[in-house]
Design a protein around this nucleic acid. Structure first.
Lengths: 154, 154
DNA sequence: GTCGGTGCAAAGCCTTTGCAAAAGC
DNA sequence: GCTTTTGCAAAGGCTTTGCACCGAC
């Protein structure tokens, strides 16, 4: 954890940005989460430590941290975007329930050498792979058992 | 093309929904597009045929068509969601440029048997796989050549 | 002490909702 | 003709922006 916090601070300073308590706090929250967070959850956690941190600052900081490559947006089902820490050893894929949004993390090297194959085949650089597997989780299958595919209008 | 249009109409009727010109038009636009479209682009194309179709109707119809399984949301980079037609023989994955959002469609069976593996391993049903490969496309690599990773603050 | 960063409030934008009129079936 | 669907306008909710004050360096 502190490994990343320190790294994040260094990156900020090296790029000429100021290391404010707010930025430090927001980055720590995301790096310590171990999962993807939405803006409102990030705000909740940050404001638990310092209630004065404004949403504006959170949005502006998320954009900055993303530009610096410290965090990234996870494109998952749902209306609001998710954010997660970028780290060499912790990239992963997602298996998400379409109904309750329960999420299971899948191993990063599930896709083997696809990475390099795509880079070579299309000439893209810095390719990152995000596999989104969406389905109906076991517990939701019960709730939706009857009204599944071939049923009641409206 | 007309194959899907007919199919879509049938599905609507069978499920007890009315087949209005608006719904027909919106579904046709998406099915004929051959790529994923954002709401504003769908509106543009629909309104090119009938300027009176309102955005409300488009939003409501998109939700309906999704519920009926005729279209789906593609979770791609960008603020607004993309929609694309669902068809047995045309599912695909995306290789998107992070900068210009240029998109290349990848073959659906790029991922082999991963599909079944996940269903069995985690007990999820109706699993669909969406691979999102993001990178920097050849043309953007030129523009960003100098100011890439280690540069100018702000 | 400077200049970048923050907080607050207002503005923006996309999306959803309420309701009367229109139109499938 | 009955009930769903539409169009319009208003409301909502998340995100961005303007600006004066604050604070990191």
């Amino acid at each position: 954890m502190h490994h990343y916090v320190r790294k994040g601070s260094q990156v900020l300073r090296k790029r000429g940005y100021r290391l404010t308590p707010q930025r430090h706090m927001i980055l720590s929250v995301i790096q310590d989460a171990g999962e993807h967070l939405q803006v409102d959850e990030i705000a909740r956690r940050v404001q638990a430590h310092n209630p004065n941190v404004s949403l504006s600052t959170i949005y502006r900081t998320l954009e900055l941290l993303q530009k610096l490559g410290l965090i990234r947006t996870a494109h998952l089902p749902g209306d609001q975007p998710y954010y997660e820490a970028v780290s060499e050893d912790a990239h992963h894929h997602h298996l998400v329930c379409r109904h309750c949004h329960q999420t299971i993390h899948l191993d990063m090297d599930l896709l083997g050498s696809l990475h390099e194959q795509l880079q070579q085949a299309y000439g893209f650089h810095d390719v990152t792979l995000d596999l989104l597997a969406s389905g109906c989780c076991p517990s939701c299958q019960q709730h939706f058992a009857q009204e599944s595919q071939e049923h009641l209008p409206h």
